[in-house]
């Protein structure tokens, strides 16, 4: 198998965290800078017409795209240790938390790129925040509600759900200036707990990252 990644951005990092926590043998990995068009070459587009990372190429030549699908595929092949729940009850909780994690980030990122001058290509439209912020706040509250007092999102061990959410927070904290809603203290503690897990990869953004991000997504004044 071979994995196409771009380590600084959050979606591929979900798979990176999953692999680190799952403990699978290392998979050959190649980096493709999405800001520099490295996923838009004919060779890459033949693998994934959507020009996104991550992409997992299987030994028999299939290209699996989307982090969620890649993690499930690897769970299908390597069910132990289980990262999507050891029982039906936990599986449902993992699936729920994973779905909510993705929904949170989507609402948050879509809002942010249109309301933050640094990230918006054109004049920011602040009204989007008035209307869309309730969506991601409700989703975050629901994630906290489902987690209850468990150490991880779906149980006592980290699962795919934690891999879906942690990189989203890691990135939004570093790049978007996200802060945890103050009443969701358990989520803040959960974040610190995942960060302290052995093997949890650190997000390292060098100086060129923000220049490339702005060139790709934002604008200078």
């Amino acid at each position: 198998m071979r994995l196409s990644m771009f380590d600084p951005v959050p979606v591929p990092r979900k798979v990176g965290l999953y692999l680190a926590l799952k403990g699978l043998p290392p998979i050959e990995t190649e980096q493709f800078n999405i800001f520099l068009g490295e996923t838009r070459t004919p060779e890459f587009l033949a693998r994934n017409p959507a020009a996104t990372v991550p992409v997992l190429e299987t030994d028999d030549g299939h290209a699996i795209v989307e982090s969620f699908a890649i993690m499930h595929y690897l769970e299908d092949l390597y069910p132990d240790p289980p990262m999507r729940g050891a029982s039906e009850e936990e599986r449902r909780r993992v699936d729920t938390q994973a779905a909510l994690a993705k929904e949170f980030y989507y609402y948050y990122a879509c809002t942010t790129v249109h309301t933050t001058a640094y990230l918006s290509r054109r004049n920011p439209v602040q009204a989007i925040d008035l209307a869309a912020a309730p969506l991601w706040r409700i989703v975050l509250e629901q994630i906290s509600h489902v987690m209850e007092d468990r150490p991880f999102l779906a149980g006592v061990q980290p699962t795919m759900a934690d891999c879906m959410l942690y990189p989203m927070f890691e990135y939004t904290l570093a790049v978007y200036g996200f802060t945890f809603p103050p009443h969701l203290k358990a989520l803040g503690r959960w974040y610190d707990r995942v960060a302290a897990l052995p093997g949890c990869p650190s997000l390292l953004l060098d100086e060129s990252f923000h220049d490339q991000l702005m060139a790709a997504h934002g604008r200078r004044f």
Partner: peptide, 26 residues
């Protein structure tokens, strides 16, 4: 597993557009 990965990838892409419409309808 390959077919299931394909379906899940489709779902992942389609639901993002669904959420766009949800947000636009707020």
């Amino acid at each position: 597993p390959i077919g299931r990965a394909e379906v899940r990838a489709h779902v992942s892409r389609i639901e993002e557009m669904f959420w766009c419409l949800v947000m636009a309808d707020m």
